[in-house]
Simulated assay, not measured.
Amino acid sequence: MKVKDFMIKDVYTLNESDTIKTLLETLSKNKIGGLPIENENSQLVGIVSDGDVLRYLNPKTYSSYLMFYKEDIEEIIPNKSKLELKTIMKKHVIALKEDDSLETALKILSQHHFKKLPVVNKANQIVGIISRGDVIRKITDKLLHAID
């Protein structure tokens, strides 16, 4: 079975020049935890997750008797939300090809502990996404059909 046979084809993507505010709105509106990032040629250039956003927005607090520095989240969000996604996206993305096998997807997901993987065509354009749940459902289908 090929990745293209079970990938989700309706993929939310954003451009690397979109803002963190746009990302937050997209994640919230669509109830998703991350998405691939593309350039102006619709090619995969990164990926960003809700965890990346939380780490980026995390207020920093330092204190000692020599130095005191504190940022509140209310002060951080307005400034950082205007920055482009290329500032926080992971740039070294492992992606699947649409003709890769189920076994290849399973291997990559398990070795790297990824939750989702983008799927690209030969031009490195995003054509789908698969999650651990998608792979588990396919494995379950195969097992159930093998038992019958």
Rank of each mutant, 00 (worst) to 15 (best):
I126W: 04
K70C: 12
L109F: 04
G128M: 10
T104P: 00
R137F: 14
V120H: 02
A123D: 15
V135H: 05
N58I: 05
T22E: 13
S17C: 04
Y56N: 13
I20S: 07
I108F: 09
G51P: 00
K70E: 15
V53I: 15
L54V: 14
K90F: 00
V127L: 09
S64E: 06
D52A: 01
G133Q: 00
T140P: 01
L23A: 09
E71F: 09
E98D: 10
L27K: 00
R132T: 10
G51A: 12
I47Q: 01
Q125R: 13
E71V: 11
H113I: 09
R55E: 10
E25W: 01
L96D: 04
I32P: 02
D100K: 04
L24H: 00
D99G: 02
L109N: 02
S42N: 15
T140M: 11
S17M: 06
K9N: 06
K29I: 13
G34T: 12
L117C: 08
Q111L: 14
V45C: 06
K80S: 03
E40S: 15
K21T: 03
D50P: 01
H92M: 11
V11A: 06
L23R: 02
K29W: 07
Q43P: 08
E98I: 07
I32V: 14
S28M: 09
I73E: 12
M1I: 12
Y12C: 02
A123V: 11
G128C: 11
V135P: 03
K70S: 14
I76A: 05
N39G: 04
V93R: 06
G128K: 09
I47T: 05
G133V: 01
S64Y: 03
K2Q: 05
N58M: 12
K86A: 01
K9L: 04
K97F: 11
L24S: 09
L44A: 10
K60C: 01
L27I: 03
M67H: 10
E25R: 03
I88H: 08
H113T: 08
V135Q: 07
S101D: 15
K80P: 00
T140F: 09
V48K: 06
V53L: 14
E84L: 05
L24E: 01
T13D: 01
Y62H: 03
D50A: 11
N124P: 01
L96K: 04
S28D: 07
F6M: 13
I126Y: 03
K21S: 03
D141Q: 13
S101G: 13
T87E: 14
R55H: 06
G133K: 00
A105L: 13
L44E: 09
D5M: 09
D5I: 07
N79L: 15
D141E: 15
K31Y: 08
Y65K: 15
G128N: 11
D50S: 10
E38L: 13
K122D: 11
L85T: 04
T26V: 11
F68G: 11
P36C: 12
D52Q: 03
S17H: 08
D18R: 00
S17T: 12
K90N: 10
E74Y: 15
L57G: 02
V135R: 05
G34D: 06
I37H: 04
K90S: 09
K142D: 13
P36Y: 07
I47S: 04
Y62I: 14
G33W: 05
L14N: 02
S131H: 05
E71Y: 08
